[in-house]
Simulated assay, not measured.
Amino acid sequence: MKKLGLYVHIPFCERKCNYCDFYSLVKTDEIEANYIESLLYELKSYKEVTKGYIVDSIFIGGGTPSYLRPDYIGLILDEIRNNFVLSEDVEISMEANPNSITLEKAKLYKKYGLNRMSVGIQSLDNKILKLIGRLHTSDEAINAIKILKKAGFTNINADVIFNIPGQNVENIIDTLSKIIDQDVNHISFYSLKLEQGTPMYRMEERGEISLAEDEEERAMYYAGRDFMEKNNYFQYEISNFSKKGFECRHNIKYWIGEEYIGFGPFSHSCFKDKRYNNISDIRLYCDNIKNPTKFRHLNEVLNIDSKIFEYIMLRLRMNKGFTLVDFKGKFNLDFEELYQDKIEKLVSLKLLIFQNGSVCLTKKGMDVSNYVFEEFLE
């Protein structure tokens, strides 16, 4: 059976963070109930078209899934089990904000079958947390990890953001050190990018804040990367580090080009050689749930050229890259012959390396990965 990943978007937040441009809104009981009813219907609608597939990863993201009534998480997972074939070792992840985690909720999540939690810590500096609009404190973040462990979770990710105005290398190491002391299994380590329309973007426009210069931003990244690797958190993708055996299966699915289906507004899918997304409007989504043409947009039918480029771009995000044998088997083409000039240029610039039949980015190449990808796009 073909492998399949499922992403479920929960578009509710208690309050939107100052840097966030994801689709989310404050919920009412009525909107929440209507949304869950529509979401369950969309899940059910895929029962027939996913025959021959086995789901090995489920990711409930947002928004703030832990802001949702916990019994709704149970309903969502029950509906998935009723309509999809799940592997015995399926990875079931959910995002949570520290201030919305309680022991009672955590125990229910465990009961419903969640086996991986991703905690949006971002920073353990209270001044930084206030600037970016987070609702939790440093102490609450650490306590959230302890609560999840007490409830029986052994697979926990911590999200960390660097390059926030006011941060420096010492600040980053302090946050990572405290998280590592809690013995989590995985750390996502992302550089802040200010998106147009967000409060922090407008603050930068007004000159109230400024992001670090490129050299300082890279210094934070290098320091964080080296510190995590010294503490046995191994980099397996540009922004992701884990202990051995705790790599995020769902995210790897994106990077190796496996199929996935997204549910709910703002979600994206890559299924049966088509890329499509649901509209970012909960009311239009709910009002038209029985007529997908009204809320689902086809973005692209993947042809051989786009498949090759996506394969290269996504696989090179991972430390191990890809093998020449796998490329040949997938596309019946020789990678070295196809991109001879590009390869020679990128190798000479020390951005790309060939070893043991594999091709991958160097650490320098990871710094300018978009440049490398653009070379192959041309």
Rank of each mutant, 00 (worst) to 15 (best):
M200Q: 14
D226T: 12
A219I: 06
E215I: 10
T198A: 05
M220I: 08
S191C: 11
L192N: 03
E217F: 03
Y190C: 03
E215S: 13
M220V: 08
E208I: 06
L194S: 04
I209H: 05
Q167C: 04
P199I: 11
N163D: 15
D214C: 03
D181H: 05
Y190P: 09
F189L: 15
D183W: 07
V184L: 05
Q167V: 09
K178T: 02
G224E: 02
Y233F: 11
E195T: 04
V169Y: 04
N163V: 10
V184K: 03
I172M: 01
I209L: 03
S188C: 07
V184C: 05
S177V: 00
T175N: 04
V184S: 00
Y190W: 09
E229A: 14
E195A: 05
R206T: 09
L194T: 04
M228W: 12
E195R: 05
N231H: 13
V184A: 04
R202Q: 08
T198F: 08
L211Y: 07
E213P: 14
I209F: 01
E213I: 13
Y201F: 14
R206H: 15
E229M: 15
E213M: 13
F189R: 11
Y201E: 03
I173L: 08
D183Q: 11
T198Q: 10
G197V: 13
E216A: 09
E170R: 07
H186W: 08
A223S: 15
L176D: 03
P199M: 10
S177W: 08
M220F: 10
F234S: 13
E229I: 15
F227L: 06
D214Q: 05
S210I: 08
Q182S: 00
N232W: 05
F189P: 02
P199H: 14
K178W: 10
M200L: 15
K230I: 04
L194D: 01
Y190L: 06
D226M: 15
E229V: 12
S210L: 10
K193F: 13
K178A: 06
L192W: 05
T175A: 02
E216V: 15
N232V: 01
E216G: 00
G197D: 12
N231E: 06
D174F: 01
L176F: 00
R202K: 14
E213F: 14
T175I: 03
N231A: 08
K178M: 10
Q196E: 15
Y222N: 11
L192S: 05
R202L: 09
S177G: 03
